Structures are given as structure tokens and as C-alpha cells.
Simulated scan of single mutants.
Amino acid sequence: MPHPTRRILLSAPALLATPAARAQAFPERALRMIVPFPPGGAADFLGRVAAEPMAKSLGQPIAVENRSGAGGNIGTAVAAQGEKDGHNILLNGLPYAVNRFLYPSLPYDPDRDFTPLAMLAVVPNIMVVSNDLPVRSVAEFVALAKARPAHYASIGNGTSLHLAGAQFTLAAGLEMTHVPYRETAAANSDVMSGRVEVMFQTISAAAGPVRGGRMRALAVTSAERVPAFPDVPTLGEAGVDLVSVGWFGLFAPRGVPADRAARLEAATVAAVNEPATKARILETGSLPRPLPAAEFGRFIAEETARMGATIRATGIRAD
């Protein structure tokens, strides 16, 4: 029979190694990435683009699950109530910061229920008008909108497109009427026909009409020009002090062990930094922004304060 002391000595190394072994084992199975928006949009695209290199880095597949509805609130609530072991992550963006101002109540608490992991990208909008509208610059559009009633389109109350239009109206000192649509095609059609004077559209949705000569691009809403339209100035360059972009990043339910959150953070940043991933993001008009957790958290806090001020000033509410 082994001496008791001998048994203890044999067991001690295994006990000491357990935490490290557990950290190395994560993830033990496939991960679930909840995207609380419909398939085919910018959020879905970025989630799937990031998931592929992340899965290779983590050594486990990542299943992207679309749980859309209520401006992202349904899927976000599902993620908040999911496992807190690192295998359940959320992709979210601007709605994460602004929905608290747009809805009377939320089925989750963005400050209490989640921890930021890393940012993926910003999604600039592009200011477009009908090719027949007699303006060729932001300054000319502002003059036109001050001289006669003007309207701006979006794909729904509280969307990033609506918020960009509202911010532009305030920054340029205009009084424009918001015209919400339920789908991109109808909004684009009315802008191209001149029924609505202007729209702050996603670059991916406006690229075809702009390149086809049916829309004219006046400016992009990011702080820098975008490679997809290098000749289109920023709003700042055009004389309007405004940056208004959509953005997306990854979150984990609060309570995920720190070592696991750190591994997910590192895998996300590395995925976005891969040249192939960057190229795919840039092709759509978005801009890669692989911010680690601390910087991402500060960015969210700034966006929440800035966009909250806009929403309070305009009285915007979700559909």
C-alpha cells in the first residue's frame, strides 16, 4: 500500500497544473456567436468574416446564429441569458449604445450584463442625392435645404442611417423632415427619383447606384476617407464638423472568467489584423478597427454619451 505522504506528493503537481490545463483547454467545444440582426447585413457579414479566422485561432468552430428583432434587443437578451463560460458571445454595435435611449425599457442591462471583448470595424455612411439634384457639394446641398423644404430618408427610426441624418441636420443648422422606409430598395428608389432629397446610406447599399450614375455621393461620414470611394470627401473636409458611423464588436456575458475573455479578445484582434480579413472588410466600404477590450470600452462610453445627446435633442424613438 503506498505511503500516504507519497500519495499526496504525487497528487500535488496535478492539482497545481489544473488551472493552467483548464485555460489551455478553452474552448472545449464549438462557440456560438449571436448576431441580433438579420442575415445579409453589415453585422452578419462582419460576424462571419471574423468567425473564420477566430475559429482557426481558437481551435474550435464558431456557429453564427442570427436572432433578429426589436432593433437587436431580442438576440442581445438571448446572449445575456446564455452560458457565461466563454462559449457564448455576442456581436453588437451602435444599437448596444443607443437602444437605452430609443426604447422605454430593455430586456437586458448593457452596463451590467456584458463585458466588451474587442471591436471589429466601423461602418461609415455616405451622403447621397439624386444625380438630377442640382447640387455637387455638401455646401451646395446645405444652401438648397435652407432655401426650400428638404427631406432625408432612412431605413427606420433609430437606425444608424436615421441618426446620421439627424446629426447632420443639427450640425448644419437645417430643418429637414425624416422619411423612414422599411427596406433599402424603396429608400434608394425615392432618393434616385428625387422624391426625397438626401440619404445617409451604407456604402455597400449605395455603391451600385453611385457608380451607375443614378446617385451622387457628396461626402462620407467617417473621420477619414474610405478606400471604396477615395475621391469623396469627409463631412469634415466639406465643412460640417461631424463624424457619424456605425460600428460593431464582440461582447461576452459578464461573468466569463478573465483568462477566457482575454483569449477571446486576443483571437478577435488577431482575426481583424489578418490581411485577408482586412481586405474583405475594406471591400464593403467598412474600416477595420481591431480595438482591444479596454479601448473598445472607452469607445462605447464615448458613443453612448454622444449619441444620447443627439437622441435627447431630437426626440427620436424607435419604431
Rank of each mutant, 00 (worst) to 15 (best):
R214I: 10
M215I: 05
R216Q: 12
R216A: 14
L218E: 05
L218G: 07
A219K: 00
A219I: 08
A219T: 08
T221A: 05
T221R: 01
S222I: 07
A223R: 04
E224Y: 03
V226L: 12
F229W: 05
P230K: 01
P230W: 00
D231R: 10
V232K: 04
P233A: 11
T234P: 07
L235F: 01
L235A: 03
E237R: 04
E237M: 09
V240I: 13
D241M: 09
L242N: 04
V243K: 05
S244N: 09
V245M: 09
G246K: 06
F248R: 09
F248S: 15
G249N: 03
G249E: 03
G249V: 05
L250I: 07
L250K: 00
F251G: 10
P253G: 10
R254M: 09
G255D: 07
G255R: 02
V256W: 00
P257N: 11
A258E: 14
R260I: 01
R263T: 03
R263L: 02
R263C: 02
E265Y: 07
E265H: 10
A266W: 00
A267R: 00
V269E: 05
V269K: 02
V272M: 03
V272A: 03
N273V: 05
N273E: 15
E274A: 15
P275D: 14
A276S: 14
K278I: 08
K278P: 11
A279T: 14
R280G: 10
R280K: 11
I281T: 07
T284Y: 00
S286V: 06
L287C: 12
L287K: 09
L287P: 09
P288V: 13
P288H: 04
R289I: 08
P290S: 08
L291W: 04
L291N: 06
P292M: 03
P292I: 04
A294K: 11
A294L: 10
E295S: 15
F296W: 04
G297H: 03
F299M: 15
F299N: 12
I300Y: 01
A301G: 13
A301E: 15
A301N: 07
E302V: 14
E303W: 00
A305T: 14
R306G: 11
R306L: 13
R306V: 10
M307Y: 09
